[in-house]
Computed example of a mutant assay.
Amino acid sequence: MRASKGILIQEECRTISRRTILKASAAMFAAGVLPPASAVFAQKILDRTQDQILGPFYPIMSEPDRSGDLTRVPGGSGLAKGQPIIVRGTVRNPDGKPVSGAEVEIWQANAAGRYAHPDDTNPAPLDPNFQGFGAATTGPDGFYQFKTIKPLHYPAGSIGIRPAHIHFDVRGRRDELVTQMYFEGDPYNEKDSFLQSVLNPNALIVKLLSPTAEEPEFMIAVFDIVFRG
């Protein structure tokens, strides 16, 4: 009987202890000391943007344009040929926080599929009004933006036809990401060995959105980037 009574007393103490802890936790939630459970479970780690090759046509012989508008060449009088687009997005770390001060470089072929690079043997014409190489630094909100044109697919020797894409090199204090952005609906996406080599090819493919009323000639491409910063 004494043993049974002792067990009952222990169980009652445990019950009181649990009630005390629950009451204390409720008080702390109400006071804002602890975050709500929904906020704890909502914290999702973002996947790092998938890497791609640098490619043979990185423009090492020129400085990137920092105006944010690659549809015009400094000192030129014309506009680049092709469909004007705005490429924009936010650079974040895996915790979802904006990365300030990240250096974002882009380079690409022109609307005929030709790079302004001496090693590009594609017979397609160069566009004197399109340099195809730009850079921007993200602000406190991690935002970047470029005005450019939609590139064309192009022949790449034994590799076959490469789909239209824009190269990115994103550098922070601790991390560097080299990747490529592709376009929805390109007939060569599914055959491209570089795009199909990643775990989730669709994460590198963007859909062109309708222009804004302020700039009706520019389609919009949103390409958010995640790296350690």
Score class of each variant (00 low, 15 high):
residue 191 K to I: 06
residue 184 E to I: 04
residue 227 F to G: 01
residue 58 Y to M: 15
residue 126 L to S: 12
residue 186 D to T: 05
residue 34 L to I: 14
residue 89 G to K: 04
residue 56 P to I: 09
residue 126 L to T: 06
residue 91 V to I: 12
residue 225 I to P: 02
residue 13 C to W: 10
residue 204 L to S: 03
residue 203 A to M: 07
residue 80 A to D: 04
residue 99 V to L: 13
residue 196 Q to C: 08
residue 217 E to A: 14
residue 83 Q to F: 03
residue 69 D to T: 03
residue 91 V to A: 01
residue 8 L to Y: 02
residue 124 A to Y: 02
residue 70 L to A: 02
residue 43 Q to K: 15
residue 59 P to I: 09
residue 127 D to E: 09
residue 134 G to W: 03
residue 12 E to F: 08
residue 30 A to E: 13
residue 48 R to G: 04
residue 125 P to Y: 01
residue 65 D to A: 08
residue 6 G to I: 04
residue 118 P to C: 09
residue 198 V to K: 01
residue 87 V to N: 00
residue 45 I to E: 15
residue 188 Y to W: 13
residue 25 S to F: 11
residue 61 M to T: 14
residue 126 L to W: 00
residue 132 G to C: 02
residue 219 M to S: 13
residue 130 F to L: 10
residue 72 R to A: 08
residue 178 V to N: 03
residue 154 Y to G: 00
residue 13 C to D: 10
residue 194 F to R: 07
residue 59 P to K: 05
residue 101 G to R: 01
residue 9 I to D: 05
residue 69 D to S: 02
residue 75 G to Y: 07
residue 184 E to D: 12
residue 115 Y to G: 01
residue 35 P to M: 07
residue 116 A to E: 06
residue 54 L to N: 05
residue 89 G to I: 04
residue 185 G to C: 08
residue 46 L to E: 07
residue 96 G to W: 03
residue 170 V to N: 00
residue 109 A to W: 00
residue 90 T to C: 13
residue 109 A to V: 04
residue 220 I to P: 00
residue 210 S to A: 15
residue 28 M to N: 11
residue 185 G to S: 08
residue 162 R to C: 09
residue 4 S to V: 09
residue 38 S to V: 15
residue 229 G to W: 00
residue 26 A to S: 13
residue 181 M to N: 05
residue 190 E to S: 09
residue 198 V to F: 02
residue 119 D to I: 10
residue 115 Y to E: 05
residue 14 R to P: 01
